[in-house]
């Protein structure tokens, strides 16, 4: 397949090492962020920061390590589509949890 040749052009060893470093730094950051009490700013701030770091790490892996950044539109579409499915899972699970206290139509 012709894609193989393209991929080797985009990434090289230093770049892979770069991705690895981003992941290591992200992991260390996550650890120290958990030690700081940010929830006093607003509830859930710690979780939010941890998720932001995780999301950044994931984006780096998908875009560069997995070559999505240089890929065709169809690949982009399927990469984004999987997030849509994740959103479905969260949204439809939360519609249960968030409405439990409503009782029968808010009574």
């Amino acid at each position: 397949m012709s894609d193989n040749h393209e991929q080797h052009d985009h990434m090289n060893i230093p770049k892979y090492v770069g991705v690895f470093l981003v992941l290591v730094v992200g992991t260390i950051l996550t650890y120290y962020a958990a030690l700081v009490d940010m929830d006093s700013i607003f509830p859930g701030a710690n979780t939010l920061v941890a998720l932001l770091i995780a999301f950044t790490k994931m984006a780096v892996v998908m875009l560069f390590f997995m070559h999505v950044y240089w890929s065709k539109r169809l690949i982009w579409l399927s990469a984004i589509g999987s997030f849509f499915w994740l959103a479905i899972m969260f949204a439809f699970t939360l519609q249960d949890y968030l409405t439990r206290s409503e009782g029968v139509f808010g009574r």
Binding site: D39, R100, G103, V104
Partner: peptide, 24 residues
């Protein structure tokens, strides 16, 4: 008092949320 409602589910706080909030 409150007509305990919900599909066999009371006006429950989810236990998991409790657990998450516990350390705080």
């Amino acid at each position: 008092a409150p007509a305990a409602p919900a599909a066999s589910g009371g006006p429950a706080q989810m236990p998991a949320a409790n657990a998450a909030a516990a350390p705080k």
